Simulated scan of single mutants.
Amino acid sequence: MNDDQLLRYSRHILLPEIDVEGQQALLDGRALVVGAGGLGSPAAMYLAAAGVGTLVLADHDTVDLTNLQRQIMHSADMVGLPKVASARATLHRLNPQTRLEPIQARLEGEALEAEVGRADVVLDCTDNFATRHAINRACVKHRKPLVSGAAIRFDGQVSVFDLRKPDSGCYHCLFPEGEDIEEVRCAVMGVFAPIVGIVGTIQAAEALKVLIGCGRTLDGRLLLLDGLSMEWRSVALGRDPGCAVCGTARCAGAVESALR
């Protein structure tokens, strides 16, 4: 860490839970943020500002006028441009020391697998169950910690699935794929602008804690926000031993280890 970095990140370094070693862990870290919208905006901005060394940001969409009410990484002069291009400009202004790797595509299949495999932490900032489950499967396969957030109307939720731990559940344990779960979108239901900021910022905080290895993350807990009453609830989560995603993967991993 050079003198400029020591000064830039001095307020982190003053915290005994972080110190020089923790800040160096951030500088050496690689975070994958899937989605550059309402959740991805504050999440990516705080990760860059905090000094995460490499930030991979994936989004296939372009900036629309309706995004500007809540997607703070984008501005009016960026309407019509790819979100990752807009994000790159914003994040570079915020912290030119962070290496930005924009992916202007819907991250899926082998490309998703490859990026998850390279990441130290993955942030799911998407808005649909199909993508969330695909990200979860990749994180389970590669045993990568997943920070998941969601927001709609006045409600928000966030959790961490630390898939490096054998007793940690996965997103599928909480929301099994194929079950009759109503999928709602901001375009239809609306969203209170600060809610995505609150949830996305918490996602950034949890990802930073994962990279540093400090404090207690939301692994094993689901944090729920009612923005109308501004009340929080914390719900304990457990791993489903019969989960079709993490149960099967871990049993296979255990068998493979035993045969070595």
Rank of each mutant, 00 (worst) to 15 (best):
L68H: 08
E108G: 10
L65F: 09
E21N: 01
D64T: 12
D59Q: 07
D64V: 09
S75N: 08
E108Q: 15
T62Q: 11
T66L: 13
E108H: 13
H92N: 15
S75I: 05
T54I: 01
R88P: 00
T54S: 04
G80R: 11
K83P: 01
A44Q: 04
Q104G: 00
A31D: 06
P42Q: 11
Q69H: 15
R118S: 13
Q104N: 10
A49S: 08
E110S: 06
E101P: 01
V33R: 06
L15I: 13
L91I: 13
L57M: 14
I103H: 04
I103D: 01
Q104V: 10
K83M: 08
A31M: 05
A87E: 04
L68Q: 03
R70P: 07
R88I: 00
D61A: 14
G117D: 03
L55P: 06
A114H: 13
S86M: 07
P42E: 12
A87T: 09
G35S: 12
L68I: 07
G38F: 10
T90A: 15
D64Y: 10
K83N: 04
A43T: 15
R118C: 11
R93C: 04
L68N: 07
L112S: 00
S41E: 07
N95K: 08
L39A: 05
L65D: 03
A76G: 05
E108N: 09
L94V: 08
E17N: 10
V33F: 09
D77K: 08
E21P: 00
Q71N: 10
A85F: 03
I18S: 02
S86P: 03
R99D: 08
T90I: 09
S86E: 01
D64E: 15
N95C: 09
R70Q: 15
P16R: 14
